[in-house]
Design a protein around this nucleic acid. Structure first.
Lengths: 334, 334
DNA sequence: CTGAAAGCGCTTACAG
DNA sequence: CTGAAAGCGCTTACAG
C-alpha cells in the first residue's frame, strides 16, 4: 500500500486537516507544526494521491487539447510548446486527435475527455459555431485557430485573412500573375481554408488580377495533398507561375512534386506556405511562408483558459485574442 | 450536479451494485433488470465519473509515453499512432516530454506522472539500465527504442546496429569512401547514437575502410544540429563524399546546409538518415533512410504493455521484442 | 492555528 | 441474480 495522509498525520501527531493545510500551503500554520509534518512527509516518502484529490476537489489539473492530427508538424509543435508552458503552471495536457471527425469532436466536448480535464483548447474543424455553442458545457472552453467572431465564445486566433492576403500580395508584387492555391475549394469561406482563401481573393482584387477558378485545387492538408494537387494542375495543363499552399506541408508537398517534374522553384514557379513550421527554414529551397505567431497563440490561449479555470477572468461574453503574424521571405519566393 | 449512479439506481428501482453490474457488463443479470437500468441511464444522461472509478479501482485507463520532445517528427508520428491504437483498447495516452533531462526522466518514473497512468512506455535517454531498473516501481514499464539486453526489463527496440550498418554499407557499395557521421561522439557506444555508431563502424570494418575520427561530428538531434555539423566539417576542410545523419532531421538539416553552400546532393555528397519520417519522402532530393518499423514498434509495445497491465503476460523476466527494418533508397543516395 | 466529521462517486468483497 | 455496507484518499465546511 502507498503511504497516505493518514500515515503522515499519525507520524507527525497531528490531524488529517493539518497535513492537508501543510500540503496546500495554508497560511496560518505554526512553523513548528509545519516542520513536523514536512519531516514526516519526507521520512515516509509520502506523495499525494492525485485521483483522490481530483475526486474531492473536482479539479484534475489537466487541460485538454483537441486537434485533428498530432503527427502534423504544426500541431506537434503547438502541443509540445503548450505542454511546456502549461507545466510551468502545474497543469498537464491531454491530447485528443479528432481527425476532423464530427463525432469525435462532439465526444471531446461532451464525453469523458471533458470530465478528465479542467478546461479545453479546441480546434473545431467540422463543427460550426452554433454546434460548439450548444454543446460547450459548463467548464471553460477556448477555441483555437479560427476566426469565429461569436460574442459568446472565447477565441484565440491568427490573422488568417490578412496574413493570407499579405503572402499573396508578396507573390503579386514580385511579378507573379497566375497564383494557384492549394488546399481549399472555391466555395470554402469559413474555417482556416476559407479564411485564407478570402485573403487570397482579396489580394488578387487589390492588385486587379482576375480570380480564376481553374487555379483553385482542393486537397488534404498533408504533403501528399500538395503533391497530388500540383500533379493535377500540371496534367490538365493549367498555366501557373506560383503556388500558395494553404499550409506549409501542402506547400512542401507541392514544391516536391514541382522539383521532381523538373519545374524550377522559384525560377519557373514560386511557392509559399502558411504556418512557418521548423521544416520551412530547412527545406531546399527554403520556404517563404507566414509565421502566425504560434508562441503568442500558445501563451495567450493558455493564459485565458487558466484565467477562466481559476476564476480570474469573469467576462460574461467571449474574450477574443488575435496573434500577430509575420511574413517570412525565403528562397522559394524571394 | 452531475447525475450519479445513485440517481440511476433510484430511477430504475434497483441497488447501486446492480447499476454497477450493468455498467461493467457483469454476466448474470436478468435481462429485464438490465433494460430497466439502461433506460434509466439513457433518460438521465448518466456518464460514469472516471475519477471516482479510478480512485476505487486503482486503474486510470491511461498509459504514459515518455519521450524527449514531441515536436520532433519521429516522436510526433509515434505518439499520434500510439494514441490511435491505444484508443481501440479503451486507453488514453498521456505524454511527458523529458528533454532528455535526467531529473524529468526520474520524475516520470517515480512521481505523479506514474500515478496517473496504468503503465509506461519509456524512452530512456539519460538514465542507464541500472537506474531504470532500480526506480522502475511496481506498475508495468516497457522500454522503447534502445537495445538494452537486460533480462529484467521489458524492451521493444529497433535494430539500431544492423540497420545503421545496412545503410552505411549501401553508401560504401555505391562507391563512397569518406562517410561523415553526424549526431554522435567517438566515445558513444550506448543508446541510439552509440548503437547506430557501432553499426557504422561495423560496416566500415566489413568493407575494409578505415575509421577516421575526423568524420565523426556530434550534434543535437535536430535540423540545426545537422546543419551546424556540416558547416563545421566544411569549414575545417575535412574531405567527405557522404553524410550519415543518425536520424532523419539531422540528415535533412545536413542536406540543407550542403545545398545552401552549393554542394550537390547526391552528386558531390550522398546523404542518408534514419527513421523514415513522412518528410523523408518529400524532401528535395528525397532522403535515403532506414524505416525502423514504427508501426510494428507501436503495436507490439502497446500489446506488451496492455498484456502486463491486464495480467495476460506473466513472464517474470523481461520480454524482448525487436522490430524489422527496411532500407528506403531514394534520391539523396541512390 | 488545529481537529473531528462528512462526503466526492464509484467498485469490491461479502451475503443471501 | 441482487442488495447493504465498507472504503479508495483526499478536501471542505464547520467548530472551537
Amino acid at each position: 500500500m502507498a503511504v497516505t495522509m493518514n500515515d503522515v498525520a499519525r507520524a507527525a501527531g497531528v490531524s488529517l486537516k493539518t497535513v492537508s493545510n501543510v500540503l496546500n500551503d495554508y497560511e496560518y500554520i505554526r512553523e513548528s507544526t509545519r516542520q513536523r509534518v514536512q519531516a514526516a512527509i519526507a521520512e515516509l516518502g509520502y506523495e499525494a494521491n492525485l485521483t483522490a484529490r481530483s475526486l474531492r476537489s473536482g479539479k484534475t489539473k489537466m487541460i485538454g487539447l483537441v486537434l485533428s492530427d498530432l503527427s502534423s508538424p504544426y500541431y506537434a509543435e503547438l502541443a509540445s510548446r503548450l505542454m511546456s508552458v502549461a507545466a510551468e503552471s502545474g497543469y498537464r495536457v491531454l491530447v485528443e486527435q479528432s481527425n476532423a471527425d464530427p463525432a469525435v469532436e462532439l465526444a471531446a466536448l461532451r464525453g469523458p475527455f471533458r470530465q478528465l480535464t479542467d478546461g479545453l483548447l479546441f480546434t473545431p474543424l467540422s463543427m460550426d459555431v452554433e454546434e460548439v455553442e450548444s454543446h460547450r458545457g459548463a467548464k471553460p472552453l477556448v477555441l483555437l485557430g479560427e476566426h469565429i467572431l461569436d460574442p459568446r465564445l472565447d477565441v484565440v486566433t491568427m490573422q488568417n485573412e490578412v496574413a493570407a492576403a499579405a503572402v499573396t500580395s508578396h507573390l503579386l508584387e514580385s511579378g507573379r500573375r497566375r497564383v494557384a492555391v492549394v488546399g481549399a475549394g472555391i466555395d470554402d469561406t469559413t474555417g482556416s481554408p476559407g479564411l485564407r482563401m478570402n485573403g487570397y481573393r482579396a489580394a488578387l482584387a487589390d492588385a486587379g488580377v482576375p480570380f480564376d477558378p481553374d487555379l483553385v485545387v482542393p486537397g488534404d492538408w498533408r504533403r501528399d495533398g500538395g503533391a497530388d494537387a500540383v500533379a493535377a494542375l500540371l496534367e490538365r495543363g493549367t498555366q501557373f507561375d506560383a503556388v500558395f499552399g494553404l499550409n506549409d506541408v501542402l506547400a512542401l508537398g507541392a514544391m516536391h512534386e514541382l522539383l521532381v517534374r523538373g519545374v524550377k522553384v522559384p525560377g519557373d514557379v514560386a511557392v509559399v506556405g502558411f504556418d512557418d513550421i521548423d521544416e520551412a527554414s530547412f527545406s531546399s529551397p527554403s520556404l517563404t511562408t507566414v509565421s502566425p505567431g504560434m508562441d503568442e497563440i500558445v501563451r495567450r490561449s493558455l493564459a485565458l483558459l487558466l484565467d477562466r479555470i481559476e476564476g480570474r477572468e469573469k467576462t460574461a461574453g467571449g474574450v477574443h485574442v488575435e496573434s500577430d503574424f509575420a511574413l517570412k521571405i525565403r528562397e522559394s519566393a524571394p
